[in-house]
Design a protein around this nucleic acid. Structure first.
Lengths: 132, 132
DNA sequence: TGACTTGTTCTAAAATACTAGTACAATCAA
DNA sequence: TTGATTGTACTAGTATTTTAGAACAAGTCA
């Protein structure tokens, strides 16, 4: 029960599982669900919880470790790394955010939600994170 | 030049191109960019514009045609179908919106943006769409 | 030391996504 | 009818994603 991250993967979503998992972890960190220094579930445990292969989890951990987001210690576990320098420039990040926003608006519209509802849903999600 | 849909695909996004395209079309319809009866670009033309294979576009058109969203007439073109009965229930749509919101928050975090910036970007996009 | 836990690496196979090219069918206009 | 346009269907090949299983490396603890 020690700070289980609320990770949700959707097998129906055409987005690859590894990409979903990576985003969820990054979001959990950004929203404070996973504070600096927090320990993540082990590769094998998370694989069981999410019903995916251990390799899929391991690959995500490795990738995030190389990106400086996570810190891994063999035999101990995987932890959220401390503040790191941003390696990508601002324009690249802006472009990524724009693309993500377009995608969300599209997905919301496809789900029959109005833009206002889309924002409301986002707010609700953020508040839930604050309390966690 | 008759109402070109503003479709943007991101090859860097791990989400499959066909899924991105499907969402964008659904969004364009939901937001009124593509009103009922409007003609979509031809399979070959859109494939050229988006730098994807014609088969990828054709598959999306076919899928949306089977879903009742589009109407295709051989030798003429593809059009937005008339009002159709909602085939998915509310809970399914809510779940889809929640998943989309989680994904956006995660993508924004991955892009180094705060949740507030994520919402700001969304608002900016909405205003731009209104004027378009 | 030895047992155990944890992350890492590797090979192999299956399923899916995407590209490429071709051919066919239906509609419209001259 | 003829030709052009458009959607549909098909095969083949490549790349990516995911699963599966095994083995190895590094750390903790008794």
């Amino acid at each position: 029960m020690e700070g289980r991250a609320k990770i949700h993967l959707d097998p129906k979503d055409p987005t690859p599982l590894y990409a979903q998992l990576e985003r969820q972890i990054l979001a959990a960190i950004a929203t404070g669900h996973l504070p600096e220094g927090a320990q993540l579930p082990t590769v094998r445990q998370l694989a069981v919880d999410l019903r995916v292969n251990a390799n899929t989890v391991a690959r995500v951990y490795t990738q995030l470790e190389r990106a400086g987001v996570l810190e891994t210690r063999r035999g101990v576990g995987t932890f959220v790394a401390g503040k790191r320098a941003a390696t990508v420039d601002q324009s690249t990040r802006d472009a990524a955010l724009l693309t993500a926003a377009r995608g969300y608006l599209a997905a919301a519209a496809a789900a029959g939600a109005s833009p206002d509802q889309a924002i409301a849903q986002l707010r609700a999600l953020m508040e839930g994170a604050d309390r966690g």
